[in-house]
């Protein structure tokens, strides 16, 4: 088996998808930080979906669905991305080898559960984890830049194949993608203002009565569910609150459910545009993130079986996040280029 090692410079990220986009573009000569990729894609949101269950718990998301970042960034920067799916696993692995042999950096969608380099406590059935393959060593193992890891890792062909062809919700079906040509340098300023308008519009939820699951409305709705935990068993209440905190912190969000990453985007965009309106928005976003961290502390305080905290307290703490997000929304919508 021939050895391939395409030149590659790995940078650790908070989140897999924005990290892959950042690493892929930066290595193609177009420097784009992770928060820039996240922010330009208007990926910040909030969704509470009680009818979609993850391990028996409702789905809570702090960002737009998988692939949004990759697709939107490619569109905004006018980059052509070649993306393929495969019905046969061997064809999928062959296509990966061929693309590597052509010197491409290849993005893959995978299931975390089948990647042996993940620590035991982080391995669960999540099918939309993104990583970059940049070569193959002489044992036939793939050289991988997994954006959430400090250093590059390797993975055997058999394990990588399982991870790429895992079944279930969001099944990757071998999805792989790579850049067609070198991206051109583009002026990011118009895209920045567009992205802020879009994020602002999404932040209060969707304007259809009876659908309270998104944006600040969704946060208030979740706060109401927490206040109602009184009627559930103590065990369920603890697992429910722990689940929210895990979705917010554990799943590679850069802290506070992507709120700090978004604030970092505003900070970087402010220096790029020299626009003080964005500086103000960045400060508000940081306050929003700090409130989410406080909420997490309160929720886990209950999980630790402290009598000192009530569901009403935890619920109030979350309502403060909703209020702060509405203030940030006003700020974002008021920004003019």
């Amino acid at each position: 088996m021939s050895q391939i090692n395409n030149s590659f410079n790995h940078k650790q990220s908070s989140h897999c998808e924005s990290g892959v986009v950042s690493n892929m573009l930066s290595n193609a000569g177009f420097n784009l930080s992770e928060p820039m990729a996240f922010g330009l894609a208007s990926a910040l949101t909030f969704a509470y979906l009680p009818f979609v269950k993850v391990g028996g718990m409702p789905l809570i998301a702090y960002r737009m669905p998988p692939k949004t970042i990759i697709k939107t960034v490619a569109k905004k920067l006018g980059i052509k991305l070649i993306s393929q799916k495969f019905s046969s696993a061997s064809a999928g692995m062959q296509a990966l080898d061929d693309a590597l042999a052509q010197g491409k950096l290849v993005g893959l969608q995978t299931s975390v559960y089948y990647l042996p380099y993940f620590p035991e406590d982080m391995r669960f059935h999540f099918n939309a984890h993104n990583l970059l393959v940049y070569g193959k060593n002489d044992q036939g193992d793939y050289l991988i830049s997994d954006p959430v890891f400090e250093d590059v890792v390797t993975c055997s062909a058999a394990d990588l194949q399982k991870a790429r062809f895992a079944k279930g919700a969001l099944a990757p079906k071998g999805t792989m993608y790579y850049l067609d040509k070198q991206p051109h340098v583009v002026d990011l300023k118009p895209a920045i203002y567009q992205s802020l308008k879009k994020t602002g519009k999404m932040m209060n939820g969707i304007p259809i009565p009876g659908i309270p699951f998104f944006g600040a409305k969704g946060i208030d709705y979740l706060a109401k569910q927490i206040a109602n935990l009184e009627q559930k068993s103590n065990k369920y209440a603890r697992l429910y609150l722990a689940h929210i905190v895990r979705m917010q912190e554990e799943i590679g969000t850069g802290g506070a459910g992507f709120r700090f990453m978004f604030a970092s985007y505003l900070d970087e965009a402010a220096s790029l545009t020299q626009d003080p309106q964005l500086d103000d928005a960045a400060k508000l976003a940081t306050e929003v993130g700090d409130l989410w961290r406080q909420f997490a502390m309160q929720a886990v305080l209950f999980c630790k079986n402290r009598q000192s905290i009530s569901f009403a307290d935890i619920s109030d703490s979350l309502r403060q996040c909703a209020t702060a997000e509405r203030a940030l929304q006003q700020k974002l919508l008021a920004i003019t280029p």
């Binding site: 391990g55 406590d121 603890r238 697992l239 609150l241 722990a242 689940h243 905190v245 895990r246 912190e249 554990e250 997490a296 502390m297 929720a299 886990v300 999980c303 630790k304």
Partner: peptide, 9 residues
């Protein structure tokens, strides 16, 4: 805080 939530799950 995060670690406690993970361990509980």
């Amino acid at each position: 805080i995060e670690s406690f939530a993970t361990q509980l799950a």
